[in-house]
């Protein structure tokens, strides 16, 4: 190969590489992008004074969901367990295994997930199936007998409760 020919190939390679890098790095950054969790708002779930004690109840509530440019009023649900002392436990309805919605089975007194068969006690402890951690609790407060929660999501499939 002549020196001139070699020089030309180097120029072709270098310039093409430069264009490629300049375009691809921004594109990769654009694709691999997930915003950190935003500020959490309190959503009013509803009145809990008439709830039974120690028995889970699914409560629906409406909240404004915002993802990127999509703002919607949507329904969410949480599992609420009212304790005798006046405290409540609020479970996220999302199975910590792979994100399905689990159900309460009053006959067995357990939470069960229909997707892959995880079973939880009323306290959220895993007693069967593949779930890697207990049910996720949500931050909540009670004002004038009404329950407020902060809707959060956590990474599924891992033993740690990591907010996303």
């Amino acid at each position: 190969m002549t020196r001139r020919g070699f020089f030309r190939k180097v120029v072709i390679g270098a310039l093409s590489g430069a264009v490629g890098i300049i375009v691809s790095i921004p594109v990769i950054r654009l694709v691999i992008n997930a915003r950190p969790p935003g500020r959490l708002a309190w959503s009013r779930v509803g009145d809990i004074t008439s709830l039974p004690h120690e028995s889970p109840v699914a409560m629906n509530f409406e909240m404004r969901s915002a993802q990127a440019y999509m703002h919607q009023l949507i329904l969410r649900d949480v599992w609420v367990i009212r304790h005798a002392g006046g405290n409540v436990t609020v479970f996220s309805p999302i199975c910590p295994h792979l994100g399905c919605h689990y159900k309460w089975d009053p006959a067995t007194g357990h939470f069960e997930c229909p997707c892959h068969g995880s079973v939880f006690t009323v306290n959220g402890k895993v007693i069967g199936g593949p779930a890697p951690r207990p049910l996720d609790t949500l931050p909540h407060k009670i004002e004038n007998g009404a329950l407020y929660v902060q809707w959060e999501r956590f990474r599924v499939g891992i033993p740690q409760k990591v907010r996303i």
Binding site: D105, A107, T108, G109, H110, V119, I127, G128
Partner: peptide, 18 residues
């Protein structure tokens, strides 16, 4: 059947109330 209909043995032990 979607495993909800066949709960684990641990879960079956506690159907006693009924």
């Amino acid at each position: 059947p979607g495993l909800a209909q066949m709960p684990s043995p641990a879960a079956q032990g506690k159907t006693a109330v009924h």
